[in-house]
Design a protein around this nucleic acid. Structure first.
Lengths: 187, 187
DNA sequence: TAGCGATGAGACAAATGTGTCTCATGGTAG
DNA sequence: CTACCATGAGACACATTTGTCTCATCGCTA
């Protein structure tokens, strides 16, 4: 059961190695022990506790890092998008391969105002993009924005499942998810 | 943290009450303790161990019960379906409200030949229905059946999320999920 | 009534996860 | 070189979970 060897690149700092190991192990099993995470990071158990007070603190740091990565990838992909509709497509393409890194966090409950505010801002941005895409004619304006946002997220997850199962390449999965989104959500 | 009172209808047998409690608690938190499950079932901890050898055995029983419920609901909904396409629609409608009962099992690894065979049979049935719907013209035949099956499942989950969030009624969610599926997957 | 079977309550030990502490080591900056 | 700092290893105590066992109780049946 134990991870006996290094699973994470040595070049990383202890802090980053611990986060990487967290994504790796908690992604497989959210109840992995902190000892396993430390071992996978190639650091001692004490060092984990030097950086994080405990499990909750580590989870919170993972959530913030995930949100950070998501935002970075999304912004980079959409900065030159010619339209909001294209922006949604490009963001989906960029986010899809990263989805597995933060999927295990979805069912987690965090009690952190900073994270909550950040997440709310992300949600608002997505909703605004969807509303703008509606105005552009890319999406059916009679469909509630919350419905479309939920579908958008779940199509990303579905695409990742296809990649994970070896059924599709990242490009194929992204194209398919986008096709389902636009064809399904146009009048 | 403990569940001090009965959470499950008294009319059930101990075995069924334990399964109900399992769906309820593991649905919220897959790492809930067996003591909590027993308490929620209104049953002593020893009785749980009289019915199940341990956590894995209980999880396996939950998986089998979930598959059973799924099959029953799906068969009842589709027995008079005029076409395979309609069958997929009716099955989606029937399965959607039950989805949350077995979603937590999706990320579980089972090592049971009976369950594996049963699950494979269900999968085969779904794939056959999708292939038949393609032949009927309801779905784009150039899309891989595995892709469509993955999307079908994820749209069901998305629909359940909408219900859970209070954003849509079961009927609305089912209609929306079906719209996304057919419009997205037709040529 | 007497006995049988299922059960709840609780005691118990073993295993695991967790948080803290100490000590020796190795690298780095002054 | 020397002092400092982060670290790995390991010891330790504590809490939780889990599996087993015993015993008294309750409902039902012969």
């Amino acid at each position: 059961m134990r991870q006996m060897c290094l699973m994470v690149d040595k070049k990383l700092s202890s802090y980053d190695a611990l986060l990487e190991a967290g994504f790796l192990l908690f992604g497989k099993d959210k109840s992995a022990s902190l000892a396993d995470v430390a071992a996978a990071a190639g650091v001692g158990r004490a060092t984990l506790h030097r950086h994080f007070t405990g499990r909750d603190d580590l989870m919170l740091a993972l959530a913030k890092r995930a949100l950070e990565e998501l935002e970075t990838a999304s912004n980079a992909a959409t900065e030159n998008a010619p339209s909001y509709t294209d922006g949604l497509r490009l963001a989906m393409q960029a986010i899809l391969p990263l989805a597995h890194r933060h999927m295990f966090l979805a069912s987690e409950r965090f009690d952190d105002p900073e994270l909550a505010a950040w997440q709310a801002a992300q949600d608002r941005e997505t909703h605004e993009a969807i509303d703008a895409a509606k105005a552009e004619g890319g999406l059916d304006p009679t469909l509630p924005t919350t419905w479309l946002a939920t579908i958008y997220d779940n199509l990303i997850y579905a695409g990742w499942e296809l990649i994970e199962a070896g059924e599709a390449t990242p490009k194929q999965a992204a194209n398919f998810a986008w096709r389902m989104f636009t064809q399904g959500a146009t009048k």
